[in-house]
Design a protein around this nucleic acid. Sequence first.
RNA 1: GGGCCCGUGGCCAAGUAUGGAAAAGGCACUGGCCUCCGGAGCCAGUAACCGUGGGUUCGAAUCCCACCGGGCCCGCCA
Length: 652
Amino acid sequence: MLDPWGKFREECTEAIRIAFQRSFPEVNLEVIALERPPSTDLGELSSSICLNVSKKLGLNPREMASRVVQAIGLYKAEAGSRILFLKAAEVGGAGYINLYADKERLFDAVIKTALELDRTWGFLKTDSPVRIIVEHTSVNPIHPIEISHSRGTFLGDSLARILSNRGHKVSRHYYVDDLGRQTAIIAYGYDKLGRPKPTSKPDHFIGDIYAITSCILEIRRLKARIKEAKDKGDEDELMRLQKEVDDWIAAAEDLRSRQKELFERILTEVDRDSDPDEAIKELSRKYEEGDEKVKSLIREVTDLCLEGFKETLSRVGVEFDSWDWESELAWSSRVEEVLRCLKQSPYAKLVSGALELDIGAAVEDLGLRSLLGIPESYQLPSVTLTTSFGTSLYPARDIAYSLRKFELADRVINVIGLQVHPQLQLRVALCILGRRDLAECQTHFVHGYVRFPMYRMSSRRGRFVTLDQVLEEAVTKAMIEVMKRSPELSEEERKKISEIVGLGAVKYAMISTEPKKDLVFTWERVLDFERNSAPFIQYAHARASNILKKGEVVDRSVNIGLLTNPLEHDLLLRIAQFPELFVRASETLGPHLIADYANDLASAFNAFYDHLPVLRAEPRELRDARLALVKAFQITLRNALSLLGIEAPERM
RNA sequence: GGGCCCGUGGCCAAGUAUGGAAAAGGCACUGGCCUCCGGAGCCAGUAACCGUGGGUUCGAAUCCCACCGGGCCCGCCA
């Protein structure tokens, strides 16, 4: 048996179904939902089914419940030993059916299962495994990974871990956006500087160059437009532009003060150029065409940035199975193919040389509103697929990428910050191409932003908190704590533990909040090492490990029935429910459920730990039983943490 | 203007999938607990008419409608 609690649940459902059928054959029950009563005094599970149907039958719900309960008694007597864990049913409250487990047998089975399955305990396999691509992170290779991006990284990685343990064939993909204006800008700046060797971590170095270059270009561009507006005498436009340029100038001053030399050098080079904008367009166009010289330049700068990403990702234990280059999609003619097909559809039109797709018309013609959940009142704007000078635009490549992913997988999950239009447009485009089926197998896993209380982040202006920075702070803080508490450890051990604890704290902070909600970043929160944090959970694990180091778990013959304290029952019950929670997290794509569970589990253990001795427990049999419980706890907690990519240390 | 997401004690926040008994937990605050397996801990206490108003229902934090507040998005950027 892999899941004793699940078996108990099945027994309850089955008993109610049969008992209900016998008592009220005229009622056709569709689903029998079981919930957890507010207290275990009212049983381990309960059903409000009688409350649901009593009205229709004009019967008193308590009356009904009591007939069902009686029938359950009879059914149980008949079934005999086929029923393992359902001990009794009672009527409760206004007409609930409360179901009691044979705790001794149930918990005995749970402990033995957990100890035996060990690393696979709780990871129930799906009946219908599919190939799933989880695409996440996909930060543009023009600046470092910011803390906000890292939410997608940790959520995506956790999702992949959960789904893979569920038995799916999961592949983790990173989409490298190396095509388009942004990459051309960084390549331009980098080239102007004479392709310098990084003087800091490569992605940070690239980020600085990008911020400065793009800022200088933006100011230039705006100044040119201001001149135009002046000539035309367009006062409104002039005011708007002036405001915008002032904003950029402030950003420029900020950048200059932090990177004086770099800023001056880039400024000199850009000023020497008669038409930087044209040069950037040219780079972009040539790269998409596959021009060898430009290719080597852009790949050089992009690789440099990715090198920095890989360093960070490897530190946090996040790996990818595939790095998908946007440029390769274009070079492989996949993008061309998509454009060719879309051009033939009735929704394509040329607007001053650029190819547009009339998404709104397609939605109406193909009747996609209900399929895609688009409200009646909402008119979708057209999407532009190519520039007038011939290069493809992001949506076109995204469609091609989507088709590519479905060649490799049955289901695609894109982990991405909250944006709606592109995803809707993408799905409409897939429908236009006749791939309605794909539009349905694509999940857009949205997560909220990480916001800062004081000021707006802007990566374009080089104003952001990087993941590297946060990790460094967290690990440093962990080191201080470890030194305080475990001075006897070697320098090397302390370092290793600090890394595990610091990283865990950051990951936990990013995953534990409901994904859709924005997260307000405060150091206090991310570096929280008390309750409701990874260090708190890891600490419980270290405590359990410490006990287990000193006491051998004797298997087989332990008598779990000796564990009768409510604190033990509470802990046992939570352990028992791990498989169910795991399945729920995988079906609903909810890594935060695991985070919450791990915290509850650790809490239950701490309460047990503080009140009941393990190693000194008397008699010997009780000690053995408690040791087995501690072991089962340790296994469960470690498995839960592994789904979050958080390590469970033996000491800290 | 339109669209999407969010709104739960002073602050953070779970619960919303599938309506059900008494709305978790943390921070802060108050008072206790180290002769005892690690105090990053444990125990107890104060604090919420679940944004507002309607509706559906025997029953709503959960479903429906309207509104209010906050965030994000509406480019030949990605």
